[in-house]
């Protein structure tokens, strides 16, 4: 068991434990902060997979953007009278049974399949190659995503705007 494995199990434990807490704790704000640890753990897993650029984007967009957005959503949609902002739950027993069956099935399939995986190559910086791919092979998708983000921003502002009285 080398250092790589130990770091992998560390990040995996952080990700799974906090991911479990995200969907089980009652307090929404605590949930959002556990989501922070989950996203950090996933960024660490990306680093272990040699995806340095994706890991940084994960930290910038998810931790810096989406999580803050979600926290704003929590703050703006609750009557904050004290620190506790609870969420109700429903359908717990059927959900546990269904998700448990799904998880067991998919995990047993994953572990029993013989994956034809190449031996992992040496980890190299990927940013330059990703940049080249984005302006050559994927330039159309890249531009379309830019337009999509613009539409999403305008749409979100329009939907959330208060009506002029």
């Amino acid at each position: 068991m080398n250092v790589y494995d130990i770091i992998f199990y560390l990040f995996a434990a952080i990700t799974l434990a906090s991911g479990f807490l995200v969907v089980t704790v009652k307090n929404i704000v605590h949930s959002a902060f556990y989501l922070l640890f989950t996203l950090f753990g996933i960024a660490g897993i990306y680093v272990l997979l040699g995806a340095d650029f994706i890991a940084i984007v994960q930290l910038l967009v998810y931790v810096g953007g989406i999580l803050i957005l979600l926290l704003f959503g929590v703050m703006l949609t609750n009557k904050i009278t004290d620190v506790d902002i609870k969420t109700g739950t429903l359908h717990i027993v059927p959900a546990v049974i269904g998700v448990g069956i799904f998880w067991g099935a998919i995990t047993s399939i994953l572990t029993s399949t013989h994956w034809k995986s190449l031996p992992a190559e040496n980890i190299e910086p990927t940013t330059a190659q990703i940049g080249t791919l984005l302006i050559t092979d994927y330039v159309l998708v890249f531009e379309l995503l830019g337009i999509l983000l613009l539409i999403a921003l305008i749409g979100a502002a329009t939907i959330a705007r208060r009506d002029k009285e």
């Binding site: 799974l16 479990f20 969907v23 739950t89 717990i92 998880w103």
Partner: peptide
């Protein structure tokens, strides 16, 4: 797979 299952559980059971 485990994270996906947690996500589904959250989507199905949470009220907020």
């Amino acid at each position: 797979a485990a994270l996906f299952s947690f996500g589904i559980y959250g989507v199905v059971t949470r009220k907020n």
